[in-house]
């Protein structure tokens, strides 16, 4: 049970097949609050927080284990095994798209289908590959994170919790939305934005749906096309929704696309 506690796993619904919802960088399982409930009637839905986010066990965090996305993928595999899942549907937002991809190559029988919302196998441009960011831009991001500026670390937690001037409100709000430990968030950002998992795509056996927003700063359209081209059995849906979080900004469109696929 410690794995389920570690990742703050919550399970709903009672379908035969399971849907595992994984949040991306910057939030927690609340990310799926407008989408996941719809699927409870037909599926057993599994929600969790990556270690370092939301209600996860912060003491389980280790810089060594989570020095690459593989550490997070291992957690996904452990959660699924703890719940005895097989042939499940993995729904991953943002960086979790790649985390699920890695998990499915390491444990191919775990997932029969992958839904990747705004995935990117590499954020930094590389020759012909357009990831959306130059190396210098990512360097700028990482430097800014390292500079420990209040805007990014010290006030990050209170900002996300709510009102910096009223920390007592913070703890209340913290129990509802997107908590994140600033130090861990910094490291997660580094791992995410310097990752390169392009080579993993071709090893995926599961069928995949790529949900691509039409105007996404984090994962631009070119990346969506790249993932589609390199995932052996995949289909690409370019949504009308803009931004990086259609699961929040366009839940209906997101639900419709996923439903059609599953």
């Amino acid at each position: 049970m410690s794995i389920l506690k570690r990742n703050n796993v919550t399970v709903h619904g009672d379908g035969d097949q399971a849907m595992v919802f994984a949040h991306g960088f910057g939030c927690d399982q609340n990310m799926w609050r407008l989408v996941e409930p719809t699927f409870r009637s037909k599926f057993r839905t599994v929600l969790f927080d990556h270690v370092g986010a939301g209600g996860s066990d912060l003491s389980a965090y280790s810089k060594e284990k989570y020095a690459s996305l593989e550490g997070y993928a291992d957690d996904v595999i452990e959660i699924c095994r703890a719940l005895n899942l097989k042939d499940a549907i993995f729904v991953g937002h943002s960086v979790s798209g790649m985390i699920g991809t890695i998990a499915s190559t390491k444990a191919p029988r775990l997932f029969s289908k992958l839904v990747l919302v705004g995935p990117s196998p590499r954020y930094i441009n590389d020759h012909d590959y357009i990831g959306g960011f130059s190396a210098a831009q990512i360097e700028e991001l990482l430097e800014l994170l390292d500079s420990n500026h209040m805007g990014w670390s010290n006030t990050m937690a209170p900002v996300i919790m709510g009102n910096a001037d009223r920390p007592e409100l913070g703890s209340e709000l913290a129990n509802s939305f997107c908590r994140t430990d600033p130090e861990i968030a910094k490291h997660f950002a580094r791992v995410t934005f310097t990752s390169d998992n392009r080579a993993d795509l071709k090893n995926v056996k599961a069928r995949a749906l790529i949900l691509q927003c039409s105007e996404d700063v984090i994962a631009p359209l070119t990346v969506g096309h790249y993932v589609h081209k390199n995932l052996p059995d995949s289909q690409l849906v370019v949504m009308k929704a803009t931004g990086h979080c259609p699961n929040l900004s366009a839940p209906a469109e997101t639900i419709a696309a996923i439903s059609a696929f599953v």
Binding site: G26, C27, S94, F133, Q137, L141, L145, L248
Partner: peptide
Amino acid sequence: NIAGRIYFETHFAPL
């Protein structure tokens, strides 16, 4: 700036 763009998309817009 780039960091702001990333954090806005991943943190503040969802919030």
